Amino acid sequence: MEKLNTLEQFAVYYRDNYSYVFQLFLDHFLISIYGVLLAALVGIPIGIWIARHSRLVAPVVSVANIIQTVPAIALLAILMLGLGLGKTTVIAAVFLYSLLPIIKNTYTGIKSVERHIIDAGRGMGMTKRQQLTMIELPLSLSVIIAGIRIALVIAIGVTAIGSFIGAPSLGDIIIRGTNATDGQAIILAGAIPTALMAILADLILGFIERLIDPLKRRRKPAIS
């Protein structure tokens, strides 16, 4: 009976607050996307750079690993001292958390391109820039997308915590539910769309990753 009451409250909450939940869902998603896109703009060039200079791999990845080990709420508190409350601080936190998977996957993707393919491009007279844009990046793109996929799932979780410092997200609903006397339905109203967002983001980027992977994109045999 108690479960039925919770489900009823859940349905009533959505009926009465549908537009509010949708707006928070949109804000949550956009904050996550902005942070990951910024991390991609910075992390992909860094990954390419360290692939060209092997001695820099260890220090760069170590710095990114250290950032990843800092608890999200602690990182938000540190950033808040300089950036204040609101979306900007959460986007900065998402950016920092997203760097590690994007840098590592870009590095791995570039290094996994077979050497004889690059040598063939060089033999055709390609410059280093042409080798990068016409050979290395296209062949490593699926691995880079996999890093962005991981980063986006992490970002969605970090953004939910951003509600503690005033950033609009589905975390607002979860926090409101934890403060309510009988708030199980309200917690579910925030937690379920957050989980669905992460699952859908993972599935969509996973599909794109498989679509552009030259090893998985095989043509069907012709019917004779």
Rank of each mutant, 00 (worst) to 15 (best):
I148H: 03
A155S: 13
L170E: 05
S98M: 01
V21Y: 10
A146F: 00
I156G: 10
I161C: 10
N5M: 15
L196W: 03
N5Q: 15
K216S: 04
L83S: 11
V63H: 02
M124T: 04
R15Q: 13
H28V: 01
S140G: 00
A39R: 08
G166C: 13
L26D: 01
I135N: 05
V57K: 13
R149N: 10
I78M: 15
L203I: 09
V36W: 00
S54W: 06
I156D: 05
Q23L: 14
L41D: 08
I144L: 12
F25R: 02
Y13F: 15
G171S: 08
I110L: 13
G86L: 13
R15H: 13
P101K: 11
H28Q: 12
L203N: 13
D182V: 11
A146Q: 00
G147W: 08
G177T: 05
I192L: 15
R217V: 00
I66P: 06
L152V: 01
S142L: 02
V153I: 08
Y107L: 15
L100C: 10
G190N: 09
A185G: 13
A195C: 14
R210A: 04
S142K: 04
F29Y: 10
I212H: 03
V90D: 06
Y97E: 03
I148N: 06
L75C: 12
L139E: 11
V42K: 05
I208H: 04
Q184C: 06
V143P: 06
L188T: 09
I66W: 04
H28S: 09
Q23Y: 12
I173C: 07
M134C: 03
L205M: 15
V42S: 12
I44F: 03
T69A: 14
Q9I: 00
I199W: 11
A93R: 04
Q131I: 09
T133C: 12
S163P: 05
A167I: 07
Y107S: 04
Q184Y: 14
L37S: 04
K111M: 10
I31P: 07
I50D: 08
L96W: 09
G166Y: 06
L170I: 01
N17Q: 08
G47P: 03
G162V: 07
V143K: 10
R115D: 10
I46H: 07
I78Y: 11
P59A: 13
K111Y: 01
I148K: 00
S62V: 01
R129F: 11
K111D: 04
G35R: 01
T88G: 15
F95K: 08
H28I: 07
D213T: 00
L205R: 07
L141K: 09
V36Y: 01
N5D: 14
M124G: 10
I67H: 04
K87M: 12
L203T: 11
I31H: 02
S19Q: 11
Y20Q: 12
A195S: 15
L4R: 11
A160Y: 02
A155E: 02
L205H: 09
A58G: 14
V143Y: 06
A72W: 00
I31C: 03
Y13I: 07
I187A: 02
G177S: 03
R210Q: 07
L83T: 08
I150W: 03
L215C: 00
G43H: 05
I212L: 12
N179A: 14
S163T: 14
A222N: 02
R129Y: 01
M1C: 11
L96R: 03
P71H: 12
R149A: 01
